[in-house]
Design a binder for these strands. Structure first.
Lengths: 212, 212
DNA sequence: CACAATAAGTGAATGGCTTTCACTAAAGAG
DNA sequence: CTCTTTAGTGAAAGCCATTCACTTATTGTG
């Protein structure tokens, strides 16, 4: 239950116990397993005291950014084989939602801060390149990418709020008749939300880009 | 510096000092002004002790849900004049983003819990009705509404992360060349993100619905 | 109309969280 | 070899949400 280090825990250790990469990975893992981040518990996971983090990181926000980096490094970069705009859109959306679906609890926190982790910037840079190659007008690439990102996050978050964003029960059928009917309709005739969103985005973005 | 109530603060007051509605409104206001919610500070705003809330509410999450209700009640229901599907989509998206833009800091918290406030459910029920009247197939209404909601939240959050989701500076031009070029292109040729998204969604949703 | 039950406040306490800072001991530079 | 820097520790400060015994007013019941 204890590392066999008999020596004192004080002072600089002979071999480093922490690194920014290890912190990011552990934070990501914690989000996946516990759906939240607590620095004391993260320290426990890493066999370290909480104050140690502040030698590697300025604070909680930076740990979250490192988790973003760890997520990007864990998610494979898709093949973007210089295909059509449609293929590019679908591939990017799919890779985003696959990554985000791994850690829904992290997403609200990622939303509130700009992307600064190099691995993440690198990944977006490649996405932009793919848009360029597919012939998208330069000034529309960022808006398009943001739209894909938002949609992927929204879709992945639905997994967290338990497959239905609206909490109504049988007795309220009369109170919210249309909402209730719509929920019943989609239950009886299930729709693959991801495929639906992918269709919406590819059709919509292509139209917006072609109209330019 | 003190309310001139000479009587003791103990025991049940002669007239109620709190209500669920007042709590929701104050919480919404606090999110707008301070970009976060703290129960001690909310108590201060309402001239009450923090423990008092727990007579009206089960906890923090419920206060957040009351803030959602207050937001819906503050945002006007749009005219949805039995128009075309396209009009319905644009009106709903526009009213959602207008509402969400008032309190970007609240959005990440709203995302993590299902909608249960009656005023909010009522509002979504009317949106569903508008989709029905416009002739959307019943089983696609919920997915379409979720898409609009996600997009509106994403667009409103961009306002918070300071108009650019990616934090890169001049020196990194060489490191992320495509991203940098795309950012420059959109700076030189500004795109109205909301209008762009509205176009994407209306074209995309119409296509997805018509294809059905 | 008395009086029990309930409702709406208070105050104090608990246990969690993030961050800071003086400290120690090892690593690395000159 | 000495000096500075680095990577840990431990204790503490100052937040936060929630609980619970308490007080006082209101409401419902016989």
């Amino acid at each position: 239950m204890q590392t066999p280090s008999k020596t004192s825990q004080l002072g600089r250790p002979r071999t480093p116990r922490l690194s920014r990469k290890a912190i990011g990975r552990a934070a990501l893992e914690m989000f996946q397993e516990e759906e939240s981040l607590s620095i004391p518990r993260l320290a426990e996971r890493l066999g370290v005291r909480q104050s140690s983090f502040y030698k590697h990181v300025t604070g909680r926000q930076e740990i979250i950014e490192l988790a973003r980096g760890a997520l990007v490094e864990k998610a494979p970069m898709p093949e973007l084989p210089a295909g059509s705009l449609d293929d590019v859109i679908r591939e990017i959306f799919d890779s985003l939602r696959k990554a985000y679906s791994m850690v829904p609890a992290l997403l609200p926190l990622l939303l509130t801060q700009p992307v600064s982790h190099p691995a993440a910037l690198e990944r977006y840079d490649q996405f932009v390149e793919a848009f360029e190659i597919a012939g998208a007008p330069r000034h529309l690439i960022i808006p398009a990418l943001e739209a894909l990102d938002s949609a992927a996050i929204g879709a992945s978050l639905d997994a967290m709020t338990m497959e239905s964003a609206w909490s109504i029960n049988e007795e309220e059928e009369g109170t919210y008749p249309h909402l209730f009917a719509a929920k019943k309709a989609v239950a009886e005739h299930p729709v693959d939300r991801f495929a639906f969103l992918a269709d919406v985005l590819s059709a919509g973005l292509k139209a917006a880009i072609d109209d330019d």
